[in-house]
Design a protein around this nucleic acid. Sequence first.
DNA 1: CTTGACTCTAGAGTTAACTCTAGGGTTTAC
DNA 2: GTAAACCCTAGAGTTAACTCTAGAGTCAAG
Lengths: 147, 147
Amino acid sequence: MSAGVRIGQLARNAGVGIHAIRFYERRGLLRRPPRSEGGYRLFDPDDARDLKFIRKAQSLGFSLAEIRELLILERTSAPGCVHVRDLLRRKLSDVRSKIEELKALEAQLASGLRKCQRELNRSRGQPEKGCPVLKELADAKESEDSK
Amino acid sequence: MSAGVRIGQLARNAGVGIHAIRFYERRGLLRRPPRSEGGYRLFDPDDARDLKFIRKAQSLGFSLAEIRELLILERTSAPGCVHVRDLLRRKLSDVRSKIEELKALEAQLASGLRKCQRELNRSRGQPEKGCPVLKELADAKESEDSK
DNA sequence: CTTGACTCTAGAGTTAACTCTAGGGTTTAC
DNA sequence: GTAAACCCTAGAGTTAACTCTAGAGTCAAG
Ligand SMILES: [Zn+2]
Ligand SMILES: [Zn+2]
Ligand SMILES: [Zn+2]
Ligand SMILES: [Zn+2]
């Protein structure tokens, strides 16, 4: 019955660009759709679902390569949980270590900010002595990486 | 007295590649050093300090463009605290929102992981019903982005 | 028929921060 | 006096995930 929807329509429905759709096809995330006589791609509803799958998986932090694997798993309807669990574990540990990194960074930045703020308060009217943060960065001894 | 050190030496001392040094020069982070008769760059100790500055600032999450500004500020020995404080504020707020993002991600991933784990426990010997995480991703209704 | 909106392919451009290569010259030590 | 180790420039390549372009063909409406 429905002969399939063209790329622009699919793109609008899914909220992605048509270039991205063709890109996903080249990368093996979307299957190659049948074509019209004139060579236009004709997508079916499952492709729309796959696009949503991609966007959800991206929001979970998966790369396109990982998503391709997930999509293949989903299509084969094989068990799959083991593979997915491993992927989730790896991602989770990546995310957790990234969070730790960022927290350390946050502390450093906050400390620098306090120093600048103090210097600005101190030098109301008085001549400034120079930014303490810049001084630390320019300081030859690289002691601040230690705890 | 000391006529200046060549690029390889400087690179070894600072722990960066020679290509990176030339790259920093092109990007305006390092000043153009004088040259030997044969055209070799001859660096002085201040350049080594600037390289350390760059590496420390990078570890604080600053981009090379931002570091260039910081270096220029540091060289002019003008007050500078205001500018630095604003940079720190922006960086800090970036870092904090990134942390929030990642924490939300962490929760999602952990929840998926628990689901996979339960399914794996449930199906000891029994046939699997398919991965619940994959099912959610493939599910047409995109409800999970809401809280 | 003739617009105008749409689509096709192949390939280049984007961003950041390097990294590497090719095809040369320079220094220094033996 | 020559070989090893070093350095030079300009420019291409890397990664991810697109984004955009050029130049051409297709399709529906009027
Ligand atoms: Zn599917
Ligand atoms: Zn599972
Ligand atoms: Zn300096
Ligand atoms: Zn300051």
